[in-house]
Amino acid sequence: MGAVTVVGVLVVAVAIKEALADYEMKGTWPQEEVVTSTKPVLPAATAHRKPKPEPSAQDVFPPAPPESLDYERRPECRPIPGPPRGGNEPHNECADGVPGNAFSGLNVLVNGKYFDALAPAIRTLWEVKTDDFEKQSPRSQDFFVKMKLPELRREKALARACGYDFIIGVRSKAHKQALP
Rank of each mutant, 00 (worst) to 15 (best):
M1L: 05
A3I: 02
V6G: 00
A13E: 05
V14Q: 06
A15N: 07
A15V: 06
A15L: 12
D22C: 07
D22G: 00
E24R: 15
K26P: 00
K26G: 00
T28V: 14
W29G: 05
E33V: 05
T36D: 11
P40Y: 15
L42Y: 08
K52F: 11
P53A: 10
E54K: 15
P55A: 11
S56D: 08
Q58F: 08
Q58M: 04
P63T: 10
P66G: 07
E67Q: 12
S68C: 06
E72I: 11
R73C: 04
R78E: 13
R78F: 10
P79G: 08
P81Q: 13
P84C: 04
P84G: 05
R85V: 06
G87Q: 10
P90H: 05
P90V: 03
N92C: 01
C94G: 00
G97T: 00
A102F: 01
F103G: 02
N107Y: 02
G112D: 14
K113S: 09
F115V: 04
A117H: 08
A117P: 00
A119G: 04
P120G: 14
T124I: 09
V128A: 10
K129L: 12
R139G: 05
F143Q: 13
F144Y: 11
F144I: 01
F144H: 11
K146P: 00
E155N: 07
C162E: 13
G163D: 12
D165H: 14
F166R: 11
I168K: 03
V170W: 06
S172I: 00
K176S: 15
L179R: 13
P180D: 15
